[in-house]
C-alpha cells in the first residue's frame, strides 16, 4: 500500500464513521479505532489520536445542521456539558490509577444493558407522562423539534435533570479514562433518564461530544498521538460523512434509528468485553 492509497482508505473509513456517527449521536470512534488497529494494523495510540479528532469533526460537522434546524436542544446540551467536561478531566487524571481491564468489563456491561433498554423502548409515540422537574422548568430546558418523518413539530418535556447531570459526569469520566467518545452513554442517559425523543437525544449528544473530546484533545496532541498524516484524511472523511448523515436524521423513522443505535452500541459493548477479558 502506498501513502496515497493509505490516505484514500483512511478518508473512506472516516466517511463511514462520520455518516453513522452523525445519525446515532456518536463520534465515529467505534468505526475509526477498530478499522485502524484491526484492519490496518496500526498502533492503538495513533488510532485513538485519530479518533479524538474524528469525534470533534463529527460533532462540529453534524451540529451545523442540528443547531440550525432546532433538532439539538442547545440549552440541555450546554447545561450537561458542565458535567461531561469536568468528568473528562477527572477521567484523564484517574487514568493512571485505575486498571483499564476492569473498566472495560464494567463499561461493556453498562453499555450492553443500556442498548437493550433503548431497543425495548418502542413506545416513542406514546411516551408516558413525565414526572415534574422544577430544575428543568426553571432552566427552560423543555422544547420541540420538527420531525419530517412524522410531518409535524414534536413537543417534549424534560425530566430527571439531576440524574441526567450525574450520568453525564460518569459518561465524561469514562470518555477521559478510556479515550472513547461517550455518545454511547450520553444518548441512553437522555433517552432513558431524561425522557427526550430519540432524535433529540442523538442530535444533542452530537452537539455535546465535540466539547467532551476537546477537553482531552490537548493531552493527546502533546503526547504526539495526533499524527497529521493519519488524522488528516480521517478528519476530512468524517466531515464529508457527517454532513451527509446529518441531512438524513429528520426524515428517518425513529423506531429504525432506535434499533440501529441499539445494534451498534451492543457491538461496541462486545468489543469492550473482549478487550477486558483477553
Amino acid at each position: 500500500m502506498s501513502p496515497l492509497e493509505l490516505t484514500l482508505v483512511l478518508f473512506a473509513v472516516g466517511a463511514v464513521g462520520g455518516w453513522l456517527g452523525a445519525l446515532l449521536g456518536l463520534g465515529g470512534g467505534f468505526i475509526v479505532v477498530p478499522a485502524l488497529t484491526l484492519v490496518l494494523g496500526m498502533n492503538i495510540r495513533l488510532a485513538i489520536g485519530a479518533s479524538i479528532v474524528a469525534v470533534i469533526a463529527t460533532s462540529s460537522g453534524a451540529a451545523v445542521a442540528y443547531v440550525r434546524d432546532h433538532i439539538a436542544n442547545m440549552r440541555i446540551g450546554m447545561f450537561l456539558e458542565m458535567a461531561t467536561s469536568t468528568g473528562a478531566v477527572t477521567g484523564a487524571f484517574l487514568g493512571s490509577i485505575l486498571v483499564p481491564r476492569v473498566l472495560y468489563v464494567i463499561f461493556a456491561v453498562a453499555l450492553g444493558q443500556s442498548a437493550i433498554a433503548v431497543a425495548r423502548r418502542k413506545s416513542f409515540e406514546h411516551r408516558p407522562a413525565q414526572p415534574p422537574d422544577p430544575l428543568a422548568d426553571s432552566l427552560g430546558l423543555h422544547g420541540s423539534y420538527p420531525d419530517a418523518a412524522r410531518g409535524r413539530v414534536v413537543t417534549y418535556r424534560v425530566a430527571r435533570t439531576k440524574i441526567g447531570l450525574l450520568l453525564m459526569y460518569v459518561a465524561g469520566t469514562v470518555s477521559g479514562l478510556l479515550g472513547v467518545g461517550s455518545g454511547t452513554l450520553k444518548v441512553p442517559a437522555m433517552d432513558l433518564a431524561m425522557g427526550l425523543p430519540i432524535k433529540v437525544s442523538t442530535a444533542t449528544s452530537n452537539f455535546m461530544i465535540g466539547v467532551t473530546a476537546a477537553a482531552s484533545a490537548g493531552v493527546y496532541f502533546e503526547r504526539g498521538d495526533v499524527n497529521p498524516l493519519i488524522s488528516a484524511p480521517v478528519a476530512l472523511g468524517v466531515l464529508v460523512g457527517a454532513l451527509g448523515g446529518a441531512r438524513l436524521l429528520s426524515g428517518i423513522d425513529p423506531r429504525r434509528l432506535r434499533a440501529l443505535f441499539a445494534i451498534v452500541v451492543f457491538a461496541v459493548a462486545l468489543d469492550m468485553l473482549v478487550k477486558g477479558v483477553t
Binding site: H70, M74, G140, S144, R152, R157
Partner: peptide, 28 residues
C-alpha cells in the same frame, strides 16, 4: 414549525435560542 424549540413553554428561553442558533451554527 418556524417557532423552533420551547414554543409551548418558556418564551424568554425560546427567544434566546432562536437568536443564538444561527450564530452557533454559523461559527461551527
Amino acid at each position: 414549525q418556524k417557532l423552533g424549540p420551547g414554543q409551548s413553554t418558556d418564551s424568554a428561553s425560546e427567544r434566546t435560542i432562536r437568536r443564538l442558533a444561527p450564530a452557533v451554527s454559523g461559527v461551527l
